[in-house]
């Protein structure tokens, strides 16, 4: 009996170990493969010049600009809305009221909707109905909708984590509700709110489907919000599916990977700084 239990124990221990090691190995393999294929392509010229000719020789400069444009613009649109919503949910409505539960449920559902669905909505509503065309505005609004639930929920959790004692101390000093929210709650939660925003930006940064349908696919350096553009992942998609240049596709993929890694590391760092 004892022998059997011991054997089972060892078997499952080994299985879990294999599972966890495979996770790391798969991840490392993907990173290694993309680096192996993509890193040699990436150089200053690749980053700073336009694609040239039918083989897309040259660089991906306009797609980088478009990607950052969309990411920053969508974050600028969504952050005030998400933070305002989270403040309302945590500080003004009762946290377990029917309304807040519905909002939470809606947010959780929306965050698992496939991005192409956001894309087709953005296309129908922003591009066609509101007449914004394929533009940074349509693209950023669509991305903002897409990352809203994510940032709303992370902000909400950040605010709920602010110790009640801080609020009590603030009210005890004669602070109004708004003073308490702005000077104590938001200030304390700020690094974690920022972490959520950065992770949301990471998602917007790598988004393909929702952007192709709303910002268009024209290679362009967008200036006005009504200019269209092609972001990096859409560029990658076109290069790969149309068999234009796998080299450039891997180069783009590698750059995307590196930048998204930066987003995640940045978010972690901020979170850790708070933990102290």
């Amino acid at each position: 009996m004892y022998e059997l239990r011991k054997a089972l124990n060892n078997i499952f221990l080994t299985l879990t170990w294999i599972a966890s090691v495979s996770v790391i190995l798969i991840l490392l393999f993907i990173i290694a493969y993309i680096t192996y294929k993509g890193a040699p392509v990436v150089n200053l010229k690749f980053i700073t010049t336009w694609p040239q000719g039918y083989e897309a020789k040259g660089g991906i400069w306009p797609t980088i600009i478009t990607t950052f444009y969309l990411t920053i613009f969508s974050a600028a649109i969504v952050t005030p809305i998400a933070v305002g919503g989270a403040i309302y949910l945590t500080e003004y409505s009762k946290p377990f009221s029917r309304f807040s539960r519905y909002v939470r449920f809606a947010a959780d559902t929306l965050s698992s909707v496939p991005s192409i669905v956001y894309g087709i909505f953005g296309f129908a509503f922003f591009v066609i109905y509101l007449g914004f065309g394929w533009s940074m505005l349509s693209g950023s609004l669509t991305l903002a909708l897409m990352i809203l639930p994510l940032i709303l929920r992370s902000t909400e959790e950040a605010i709920l984590d602010v110790p009640y004692g801080y609020k009590e101390a603030s009210y005890g000093l004669g602070a109004t509700k708004w003073q308490t929210i702005s000077r104590v709650v938001l200030r304390t939660a700020f690094p974690r709110i920022l972490t959520g925003v950065i992770l949301g930006m990471g998602r917007a940064f790598g988004e393909t489907a929702a952007v192709m349908l709303t910002a268009g696919m024209a290679l362009n350096i967008p200036i006005s919000v009504f200019d269209g553009g092609r972001n990096m992942s859409s560029h990658l998609f076109l290069l790969a599916t149309e068999g234009i240049s796998l080299d450039a596709a891997f180069g783009t993929a590698f750059l995307l990977l590196v930048i998204i890694l930066f987003f995640n590391v940045g978010a972690k760092r901020i979170a850790r700084r708070v933990g102290k």
Binding site: G165, A169, Y171, G172, L173, R187, T188
Partner: peptide, 16 residues
Amino acid sequence: LRKRVGMIFQQPNPFP
């Protein structure tokens, strides 16, 4: 009122 009647709690809760 709360300005005139201050309060100290069990936990000092300094703001961060």
